[in-house]
């Protein structure tokens, strides 16, 4: 009987822990949602900050984050997908692939602030871009590269071998097979990886601190060499170093909520797509 009681206690604790985690998530999301929803309206989303960021909206930060997401994808998607194609379709399973894979795995483990340091030293100072959208995008692109490579590799590997042999049997060359057969069937999975990295890029703060982010800009950025405001950095500024931290607290809640909604939207979208794809694959 004794061991039965022990088991019951242990299992009760584990259930409690699981509930606790759900509670933590709900309290974080709920807290920000309840406080943030009060300030979010159309004006908040479409106007610039006013009165030392204690009033007005966050439009420039939304625009800046959008530019950074697009900019980093322009850089990271072609490079990531192409190197995934190279490692899966061309390089076989030799030493080079193992090396590349090890390197990209390690790239994923580097803290984001180190990317920020590197971006500042190379793009901002050495190449002379200054604090600019292009420097920030390249830094963020580098950060998402491992995500895109890994998901693309998995997507390519998931394409059944019979597709390839079938295509070859019809007389298609290797490139034709990749372009006409493999890529189209791997595309949805690759897309999932890209969506995932959109979520990641829009939430990152440390890499943009010294490469692009501006405390406040009177106008929207007009070229890839201008600075930009960005949502995560804006939240950081509002929370810690605004002109009047207490007065800008409501705006900070609103910014946090917008940021969370963007990030979670992309995460959920990716999860949803993946689930649908898995179902489809099972049906085949």
């Amino acid at each position: 009987m004794n061991k039965k009681i022990k088991q019951n206690i242990a299992f009760f604790v584990f259930r409690l822990f699981s509930l606790l985690i759900v509670g933590v998530l709900i309290s974080i999301l709920g807290f920000i949602a309840i406080n943030g929803i009060q300030v979010i309206d159309w004006e908040f989303l479409t106007t610039a900050p006013k009165e030392g960021m204690t009033e007005g909206g966050i439009f420039p930060a939304i625009v800046g984050t959008f530019y950074l997401v697009v900019g980093s994808l322009i850089f990271a998607v072609p490079l990531g997908v192409m190197s995934a194609i190279y490692t899966v379709e061309y390089a076989g399973n030799g030493r080079i692939v193992r090396f590349i894979r090890m390197m990209t795995n390690n790239l994923a483990s580097i803290p984001s602030i180190v990317f920020g340091l590197f971006g500042m030293a190379l793009f901002v100072n050495k190449l002379g871009f200054g604090d600019s959208i292009i420097a920030g995008s390249l830094t963020l692109g580098l950060l998402t590269l491992p995500i895109i490579i890994r998901t693309s590799e998995e997507a390519l590997k998931a394409v059944p071998e019979s597709y390839r042999t079938g295509s070859y049997a019809l007389g298609a060359g290797k490139l034709q097979t990749i372009r006409k057969v493999i890529l189209p069937s791997a595309m949805p999975n690759i897309l999932t990886g890209i969506i995932l990295s959109v979520g990641r890029v829009s939430g990152e703060t440390a890499p943009i601190l010294f490469t692009v982010a501006a405390y406040f800009l009177p106008s929207l950025p007009d070229s890839i060499f201008s600075q930009a405001m960005a949502l995560p950095y804006h939240l950081y500024v509002l929370a810690t170093s605004g002109t009047d931290v207490e007065a800008s607290r409501p705006i900070a809640y609103g910014t946090a909520l917008v940021l969370i909604m963007i990030v979670l939207f992309f995460n959920l979208l990716a999860a949803f797509l993946r689930q649908r794809l898995n179902k489809k694959l099972k049906q085949h």
Partner: peptide, 23 residues
Amino acid sequence: LKPIIELLSGIPSVVYGFFGLVV
């Protein structure tokens, strides 16, 4: 439960920082 835990890892660190700061 799995997606909930995944959501937890999706929240940006600056939001965690903000939550830590105010709560």
